[in-house]
Design a protein around this nucleic acid. Structure first.
Lengths: 211, 211
DNA sequence: TCAATACTTGTCTATATAGTCAACTTTTCA
DNA sequence: TGAAAAGTTGACTATATAGACAAGTATTGA
């Protein structure tokens, strides 16, 4: 770790950011595919086409690199999370949210997989995030659903299960891609196929919730 | 590998089966938590409380052990898969299937997680299974849905997405347990909470499909 | 231009890991 | 009961892996 007090001259340097990003991208793919323990610094280095020692210049160690990757990913999630805003029309809000989540699955499949792997492993590196930002977000959204229910705008369902169902369904298309490709007999999931899937999910969730 | 031609006497031995099962169980947990690469033979041995060399007496190598664990798991899946049978009443059939899948998630969470990890990694060790048994099963179930649609018993949705949604939602409770526990502010998922979740899923899926 | 700082990387080390092996104990059955 | 087969396990090896380090090169700003 370079803990320079940085009182001197010199510039922030965009080399730093560029190199870090390159490594982070390679690391995200490796961690998403093999998990924290299964990933190796060597393979990340090869994938990023830098010497292994270079990674240790920018990141203290494997855990530090993993933490940086996770942080990167969570920042992406947040923007999607906030799509589920408090508005009057549930159909519109939920429709937009499902579209946003599906779009995220399509454009950031590795981020989704990384998150899933971490969860399946018991989320040992996410407890802080889950206990704070996530918990708060979840409570707030729960109350949105509850107000809809109170106003008779949707069926009297436990909002938690509705949220879980939306997350599960939308992330499935990123996380379980091999299964989907074989079931649908396709080589890859096109943007159109994602749109169709989003429409099906919206149909079932909205109608199923009595919206 | 003991490649004895076994023309001699001796018995099949239940010691074999007992030890194998013990190791397989420990291996399932380890592979489910850390994936194939991240799992270590040493930790599996410690968890099963046998010396590492003992594992190599029963299983040729790490890949062989992983294959045996996967095979074990897939056999469990099959029994749940077949719950989705061809009957006249969609509500009854789908209801039973969702209950069966949720029950599987509750009683075999590690099996579900193992499968999920393998999928997220690109299913490198499942191509044979996916291409054969799974593909066939999927086609057959698709046609069941199609006949329901033709008979006007449910909305005209792509059956694939309905099946994906059921799988995604039911497996979510096993795979993403940490997220669920924190969201619901619980220490563990009780049988009752699983039943509630199953009821919500059934409500949304059945109503959402117009059944 | 030049000195300070940022960045790069080949080489090295300690440890962890998969897998082997041969000596050993237990179980079986004739 | 005893010999053959099944099962057990401590000690070993080769390799992979995370990480350190120092000697180097590139970049910056005064």
């Amino acid at each position: 770790m370079t803990t320079s007090i940085s009182r001197g001259p010199y510039k922030p340097g965009r080399i730093r950011e560029q190199s870090r990003d390159l490594i982070l991208q390679a690391a995200e793919a490796e961690f998403a595919c093999h998990g924290f323990r299964g990933a190796t610094m060597q393979r990340i280095a090869e994938s990023a086409q830098v010497p292994k020692a270079n990674i240790h210049y920018y990141f203290s160690n494997k855990l530090g690199l993993y933490g940086a990757v996770l942080e990167n990913t969570l920042n992406l999630w947040d923007t999607v999370f906030n799509e589920l805003s408090s508005q009057d029309d549930p159909a519109h809000v939920l429709g937009r949210y499902i579209d946003a989540k599906m779009n995220f699955s399509r454009t950031n499949p590795t981020a989704s997989r990384l998150f899933a792997k971490e969860m399946i492993s018991g989320a040992p590196h996410l407890s802080a995030y889950l206990q704070q930002d996530y918990r708060l977000w979840f409570k707030q959204r729960m109350s949105i659903f509850e107000s809809w229910i109170a106003q008779g705008k949707m069926d009297d369902l436990d909002p938690a299960h509705v949220i879980f169902m939306i997350w599960a369904s939308t992330q499935y298309y990123a996380d379980f891609e091999p299964q989907i490709l074989i079931a649908t007999e396709a080589q890859s999931q096109s943007e159109a196929s994602y749109r169709q899937a989003a429409n099906s999910i919206k149909h079932i969730i909205l109608k199923g919730c009595g919206i």
